[in-house]
Design a protein around this nucleic acid. Structure first.
Length: 787
DNA sequence: GGTTATGGATTTTTT
DNA sequence: ATCCATAACC
């Protein structure tokens, strides 16, 4: 049993409970993936279970790949045949194989959000619904929510029947019909229709039940109704179902995830074994304590508490900036100082924000400081217009019934086929009850149209027909090249002369080489498998050179990741928690979970910042610190609240913030803030000299150790989490300085303390000044003041 | 049929 | 502020 000896007792329990229903609560940083992979390895190597009888379902391709890889490295070829995939890819596969039984053609295409929206708009306009009064996006959202709960168009009845529900119901029916006509499924259909298949075709269900003897579901807190039913059906016979998740990290409720499902697991399976992974290997004690202080405010959660054998660590730092710009400057200043002082590398940092819109001011600050950064998320590769255009060509070739794609490309590049011509095409399609693509061939005889338009359509049709022929014979890459050439799209981009189009042309060429790589790698590189891959695998080209740069991302995007040093920025009411969540306690709880996720990303240091004034949608506003900041225990946070900022703007402004600053729901007046600040300074001062010296020395030792350390970057990160170099506070003339502090010097101006060394009598500070560079200063003599 | 003005809204986004 | 969509233009 040497295999499982490498797990802690709780992890081991999770791995050993092979038979029957198992619920694993896996807290942040508790070694969940480790427990899971060892569990599977144990099943294969020690229980004699064939890998091909195990199904591991995840939400992301990344998670699925990671699982596959780690299993392989544990058990080698024994792991061959393991079913590891996302819900959507498993469903797509099942529908491809058996969908015909419920009327799904084998060459169906998968519609993404954009495609869905255009089909919704199309449907609404047919139904003569005013898209100003009812926003298509809202309607789509409701339809999606219905599908996630397995409510079909017929059953769609809302409890509160209003005009909006009526609109949704009517649109829903037509939308589904249009999907059928286009031989398309949207993301939600993949799940809903698979459940339909399994419910209506017992022989199909049995077939899969006979394959998947053991089922494992990751991130179970994020599951929606359809996914729940899918898993439940597959597991019904053998009941070997192991689900893993953390209700405290459920942050996708707005996308249909239902935390209640994980909390109800024991109701579904009363004999379930429940394992809690509560030992955290990631963060310092203080970080975990703060995380708990926040999350424990939530009322609906399974009680559990992370603990760690890691060191207590540094206090958290809270910083109040004057403005969004100064907030970014401060964050970048701290990072820059620490990096220059060799306390950390850019890849050790993450800047986390609530919404992508906040990335910009940080990008600008990082650019000015010439610090390498990486924007994670944002506009995705496959969502770029060029790529979508090109894909639309491929999709029409594969499935001519796809009218959404046809509409996208029929005048891309511009060939003089506008709305009017398109309307004619649609009318012909309607009259002949054929698809718009088939209608193309009749346009030539349609006298209503100008000769020019008819010829343009004819030419386009010929090109597409020829490409369709080529698709039968040419391998994928060649086909892609032919499409790029014959469509005239590449030429149009190259000839346009604009820099933007030149970049698009490059993107397009890059996409062709991506197809080539797919062709070389895949066993069956058909057009169909390629399109499916693109639709379901969005994150193939991520995570390579990440690691040497500061990561900028949303807190959602950070889930599952860890960083030695984390900045959570924009900690203000209305931003975090977000304005649109503030009305509803349930949504506030999700925001709080998001805050918990953010905090638990940090291994050794955590900074929380908020701006006193911020321009939102072009309107300058005075901001209130986030209620989540008030949840943090005072003794664990050094709050750098600059009273002069508050006072200045309060005196200048005439709003009701004049005498009070709000900390969440607690209203406190300025004298209270003053006393808080004093208290915090005192805490810093009362640290014994020995203690401080010890920390400073430790930091120094770590630094020298690091020089020798030849481990890979990854290992280094880990180590830092366990024994991070501390920015040790040092008491000088009654003032505690630590790395990251802002100081002011009469000659050099404002700077940031980068490193501290020496004994209490002879303290040496390294201070980075933006204009004068890094200076070595003796704390006892240099005329330094806190800035 | 393509180009510029106006109005409106504006989170998060594993698939 | 800025992006997007529709509308009124050329």
């Amino acid at each position: 049993m040497a295999l499982l000896d490498q797990l802690n007792p709780a992890q081991r329990q999770a791995a050993e409970a092979v038979e029957g229903p198992v619920l694993v609560f896996a807290g942040a940083g508790s070694g969940k993936t480790r427990a899971l992979t060892y569990r599977i390895a144990h099943m294969v190597c020690e229980c004699g279970i064939a890998a091909k009888n195990i199904l591991a379902v995840t939400f992301t391709n990344k998670a699925a790949n990671e699982m596959r890889q780690r299993i392989r490295s544990l058990v080698g070829d024994g792991g061959r045949g393991l079913w590891a995939g996302t819900f959507h890819s498993m469903c797509a596969r099942m529908l491809r194989a058996d969908g015909e039984a419920i009327g799904i053609a084998e060459n169906y295409v998968i519609y993404d959000d954009g495609d869905q929206l255009s089909l919704i708009k199309q449907s609404m306009s047919v139904l003569d619904i005013d898209s100003k009064q009812y926003k298509p996006a809202d309607v789509l959202y409701s339809i999606s929510a219905a599908k996630n709960e397995l409510v079909g168009p017929q059953q769609y009845r809302h409890a509160s029947k209003g005009p909006f529900d009526d609109v949704v119901r009517r649109t829903y029916s037509l939308y589904q019909q249009k999907l059928r006509e286009n031989n398309a499924l949207d993301f939600d259909d993949l799940l809903m229709r698979t459940v339909q298949l399994l419910r209506e075709r017992p022989e199909v269900l049995e077939k899969y039940q006979d394959v998947f003897h053991y089922i494992l579901v990751d991130e179970y807190q994020d599951i929606n109704g359809a996914q729940y039913e899918f898993v439940k059906l597959l597991a019904a016979r053998r009941r070997n179902i192991c689900v893993v998740g953390d209700d405290d990290q459920s942050i996708y409720g707005w996308r249909g995830a239902n935390v209640g499902i994980i909390l109800d697991f024991e109701k579904d399976y009363p004999d379930a074994r429940v394992v809690k992974l509560e030992q955290n290997y990631r963060s310092t004690q203080k970080i975990l304590e703060c995380a708990y202080a926040v999350i424990s405010q939530n009322s609906t959660r399974a009680e559990k508490r992370l603990w760690t054998e890691n060191r207590p660590g540094d206090n958290l730092t809270q910083y109040q900036a004057v403005s969004a710009e100064e907030e970014a400057e401060w964050v970048v200043g701290v990072i820059d100082a620490q990096v220059r002082g060799k306390l950390a590398q850019p890849g050790d940092y993450a800047v986390l924000y609530r919404a992508n819109a906040m990335s910009r001011v940080f990008e600008e600050a990082f650019m000015r400081a010439r610090l390498p950064y990486e924007l994670v998320g944002g506009v995705k590769y496959y969502e770029r217009a060029v790529i979508k255009d090109f894909l639309a060509y491929l999709r029409v070739i594969h499935n001519p019934a796809d009218s959404v794609s046809l509409q996208r490309i029929i005048n891309t590049p511009a060939r003089g086929i506008g709305d009017k011509t398109l309307a004619v095409i649609n009318r012909i399609a309607h009259l002949n009850s054929c698809s718009p693509y088939e209608a193309l061939r009749y346009v030539a005889n349609f006298e209503d149209l100008q000769k020019r338009a008819r010829e343009a359509v004819g030419d386009f049709h010929v090109v597409m027909e020829q490409l369709g022929e080529k698709a039968q014979t040419l391998p994928l890459t060649e086909l892609c090249r032919a499409v790029a050439e014959d469509s005239g799209y590449l030429r149009a981009l190259e000839q346009s002369g604009s820099a933007e189009d030149a970049r698009k042309a490059e993107d397009l060429k890059e996409f062709v080489s991506l197809a080539q790589r797919f062709e070389e790698r895949e066993e069956e590189p058909t057009l169909q498998s390629f399109l499916e891959f693109i639709a379901l695998v969005s994150d193939l080209d991520q995570a390579e050179d990440l690691g040497s740069k500061v990561c900028l991302m949303t807190m959602h995007a950070a889930k599952g990741l860890e960083f030695p040093i984390v900045f959570m920025v924009g900690m203000e009411e209305g931003i975090f928690p977000h304005q649109r969540s503030m009305g509803d306690e349930y949504q506030i709880e999700e925001e709080r979970r998001l805050c918990y996720v953010g905090i638990t990303r940090a291994q050794s240091q955590l900074y929380l910042t908020h701006a006193h004034r911020r321009t939102i949608y072009g309107e300058p506003r005075v901001q209130t610190p986030s209620r989540f900041l008030a949840d943090l225990p005072d003794e664990l946070v050094d709050r750098q609240v600059d009273l002069s900022k508050v006072l200045t703007s309060s005196v200048l402004g005439d709003d009701d913030e004049v005498t009070e600053e709000r900390y969440g729901e607690k209203r406190i007046d300025l004298t209270d803030i003053l006393s808080r600040i004093r208290r915090n300074t005192d805490t810093a001062k009362t640290r014994t000299v020995e203690r401080i010296e010890q920390e400073a020395e430790e930091a120094q030792r770590d630094r020298t150790a690091k020089e020798r350390d030849q481990q890979s970057q990854r290992d280094r990160r880990k180590q830092r989490a366990e024994r991070p170099q501390s920015a040790a506070p040092v008491a000088v003339a009654g003032i505690a300085f630590k790395a990251g502090d802002r100081v002011s010097h009469p000659k050099f101006g404002i700077g940031v303390v980068v490193a501290v060394s020496g004994s209490s009598d002879d303290l040496q500070l390294k201070v980075a000044f933006p204009n004068s560079g890094v200076k070595d200063l003796a704390a006892a003599f240099a005329p330094l003041e806190r800035a």
